[in-house]
Amino acid sequence: MPKSVMCGNELTVYLSGDIDHHSARKIREATDALIQQNQPGVLKLNFGGVNFMDSSGIGLIMGRYRMMLLYGGSVKVVNVPDNLRRIMELSGLSSLNVFERSGEFCESVK
């Protein structure tokens, strides 16, 4: 189970390790369970602990984006490490306005 914090209506999920097709499935199931439990308005995916990601991670973000949209909520992607920048840019996710700088109050509660 990834570490998570609920703050106001914002659920932050801390992703870590390698995100590939193999690991994405468990991350997806755990994240979706947390969404069901907490019913947040904003889902914050914190990529700070992620060492590696291929396009499976893009599919993971897109899937959560669609799910949150269905609930009238939104997704924010924060703390993206340098080595994931290029794949994040290539994904076209920036046009969905999901990227946000980290370091706000909710994060420092941790």
């Binding site: 396009s55 599919g59 794949i87």
Partner: peptide
Amino acid sequence: EERAGLGFAVMQS
């Protein structure tokens, strides 16, 4: 399966 359709695009990039 939540494939993004970006595999070849990533390889090319």
